[in-house]
Design a binder for these strands. Structure first.
Lengths: 252, 252
DNA sequence: GACCGCTCCATTGCATGCAGGCTTCGCGTT
DNA sequence: AACGCGAAGCCTGCATGCAATGGAGCGGTC
């Protein structure tokens, strides 16, 4: 029955559960017990339990006082704040990178990424540009972290980005659906350029401000998506958003 | 043999292990296996394992590729960055609080704390002032978070402050040993005052800058402690600092 | 003598049996 | 009829047995 499973059960459980939560199989606010998950996944309690606590640390779940877990829900303000926090951390990364005064060689990798992004954004290939853009965008953010070379920044960023809607690429798809998409994309790309430029010139404060402002693009797209519900479907983790119909605690 | 333990084994394990790590029973870089902990604590593997993964998320441990854990070590730069991150998050909290334009009533609690701190700092009672200062200082930071009322900021701050040397009170004791202590304390207290004032007047940018600068006091004390090794003993989690003698990877 | 391979041991990952607590439902009494 | 008390069942927390994997050490062969 189970000789096939040689991969880690715990990872399986984690992936499946995350998928279930993200796709709305488990609704926000819903209580989820070990047993229910065991029945649903066919994995025994030990790895399931481990996966549940991992999801708790990732922010998807919270423990209930009486034991068991509950699917976390998020307000629009929460999403906004998460994006802001990412922006601040990336800003700090840019500043730290600038203060190290990296030479041209150290900047080579990220410069290549910026140029590749240039080609994508300016490119006349309207079809199939999305995939590489997302990939390069993520690469840019990773390479910015590499330049800062701070395990603490890395750690905090990883923590906030474990919330899917806080990642740099979360709202790219929203922009796509909107007419001004091309202009926004070019604007963001200019920011990429200027961030690297500021770092190269050791302008820490400027690099920080640019990176922070860069994250505001995501906030802009968030507002767009909130106004046009159909756009929300493009955002990973949108199902975790609290339904406004809930008369739940606005304020504790 | 086991009828006495009715409290949660897992919590016991967590507390004991954290204490062991902080007091240096487990050295940084040391490998720690489940079995060793089971023998040492007399708690079975299931709760021990859970406690270990929790400590991993808190940043005390990291998983080894071959399985098992390793006590994390931190460079002085890591500590500095952690303090900076806390400062940024507190700055964001102050800004968000200011942008909400809280009325006098909402500010009542934190104002009382500031005044209580004033009495402690200005007070002529040189003995026994430390305890209340630490308590009030922590209360101030908590109440600042209450004003911002952002679960995301709260979450990220809790995460970074799970590292003991990143908490607001971590370096207070260092300042105590130094002659200029009184002056520094009054300076920090003035910042407390001004932060609340800025929030009350809706000056978000100023509140943020003040809160960020406020955290720099901890960085200052960190440098002091690094120069004078004896002061380091006052800092919680100092045993996690990487020994400079290690010729380990400075840079990956 | 050195290198490759095999075997054994240590250690983690998984499953399940067991006990205790919290809640809920039902029955009895006022 | 309503409230309180008691019992039962579900659910979580813990312990331990078992299997599988990775590494180290030893032996054999080239």
């Amino acid at each position: 029955m189970k000789p096939a499973r040689r991969s880690r059960q715990q990872i399986q459980a984690l992936l499946k559960l995350r998928e279930f939560i993200l796709t709305g199989v488990f609704e926000p606010g819903e209580r989820v017990s070990e047993l229910a998950v065991v029945d649903k996944l066919g994995i025994s309690r030990t790895p399931v339990r481990l996966a549940l606590t991992m999801l708790e640390h990732e922010g998807y779940l919270e423990t209930l006082p009486g034991g068991g877990f509950r699917v976390q829900d998020f307000s629009p303000e929460d999403v906004q704040d998460a994006i802001d926090i990412r922006g601040m951390l990336e800003g700090m990364a840019a500043r730290v990178a600038a203060e190290r005064r990296p030479d041209t060689e150290a900047l080579a990798t990220i410069s290549e990424t910026v140029e590749a992004l240039d080609r994508v954004v300016r490119g006349d290939t309207p079809a199939g540009w999305l995939e590489p853009y997302i990939e390069l965008n993520e690469a840019f953010h990773n390479q910015l972290l590499d330049l800062a070379d701070s395990s603490m920044i890395r750690r905090s960023l990883a923590h906030i980005e474990s919330l899917p809607f806080a990642s740099p690429n979360a709202f790219v798809l929203v922009g796509v659906e909107v007419g001004e998409q091309a202009e926004i994309l070019r604007y963001g790309q200019m920011q990429h350029r200027l961030i690297v430029e500021a770092i190269a010139q050791g302008e820490g404060a400027r690099a920080e401000a640019l990176a922070r402002e860069h994250a505001r693009l995501a906030r802009r797209n968030l507002r767009l998506a909130l106004r046009r519900g159909d756009l929300l479907k493009q955002v990973p983790g949108a199902s975790l958003l609290r339904h406004d119909t809930d008369t739940a605690k606005r304020k504790a």
